[in-house]
């Protein structure tokens, strides 16, 4: 599986968010998309999904242009940054609705157990706490066996135990050879998981490479200081 992004530009009104982005993900692994708030991380992920329409450029998956189409979403699990669900449904109803729409084999049971969600299954989504909603978000994303995972701030609101579980889960999926794109501001997650960093800054890719390469490039000891140095 290969994702290749070429020459993507995106403006919202007169705000230019992406100025011709290029990168290839040509093997399985965990790719961390980093950058300050508003640098366009969510935007590029949504362009890959076809939810945001770029002014120019192409997204190709296995040689096929996919932006503006929808079929490729069969192979993508997407965890949105802001989990918004129809409020009048229960967790169970939501899960069965998505299964019904996708018509693919799903393994939600293991995930429900992993994140201790059994007590909440019959509750309305509007009554759930922020972190619990995020767990629902995680279950919906991981329950299908998608070769590509796009995770936009998956850790938001999770307690430490759930965070550990999530890390295990991501690692597990990586071992199946999936392409995992992840944005996060939690650098320790990047250090422990990411094979590669894509650092967005002012509409361009400032850096693409491993954590070691980045610390070497900036001459700092760790990722945190390297990034602080870039942003100064």
């Amino acid at each position: 599986m290969v994702i290749s992004i070429s020459n993507i530009t995106k403006k919202f009104g007169n705000l230019t968010v992406l100025k011709g982005i290029n990168f290839d993900l040509d093997r399985g692994g965990i790719f961390a998309v980093l950058g300050p708030n508003g640098s366009g991380k969510t935007t590029i992920l949504k362009i890959i999904l076809g939810m945001v329409i770029p002014q120019s450029g192409e997204v190709m998956i296995d040689g096929k242009v996919v932006n503006k189409s929808w079929g490729h979403r069969k192979g993508i699990g997407y965890l949105p940054q802001i989990a918004r669900f129809p409020d009048n449904l229960t967790v169970n109803e939501l899960i069965s609705m998505i299964k019904d729409i996708r018509q693919m084999p799903a393994e939600e049971k293991v995930l429900i157990e992993k994140f201790g969600m059994e007590p909440f299954l019959n509750q309305k989504l509007s009554n759930l706490s922020g972190g619990t909603r995020q767990k629902v978000n995680i279950i919906l994303t991981f329950m299908f066996d998608s070769p590509i995972l796009i995770l936009d701030e998956p850790t938001a609101g999770l307690d430490p135990l759930s965070l550990v579980r999530l890390k295990e889960l991501i690692q597990q999926e990586k071992e199946k050879g999936k392409i995992i794109l992840i944005t996060t501001h939690i650098l320790n997650l990047v250090e422990s998981l990411a094979d590669e960093i894509i650092f967005l800054l002012e509409g361009d890719i400032y850096f693409k490479g491993s954590v070691q390469e980045l610390t070497k490039k900036t001459g700092m000891n760790d990722l945190e200081h390297s990034i602080a140095r870039i942003l100064e």
């Binding site: 999904l49 939810m51 929808w70 079929g71 490729h72 979403r73 069969k74 993508i76 997407y78 949105p80 918004r84 669900f85 129809p86 409020d87 998505i98 729409i101 996708r102």
Partner: peptide, 16 residues
């Protein structure tokens, strides 16, 4: 009012 539902559907393999 159904923005949430719409956004959920937009991430699924369904034509816009």
């Amino acid at each position: 009012n159904s923005r949430e539902f719409t956004e959920l559907l937009l991430a699924q393999p369904i034509k816009r």
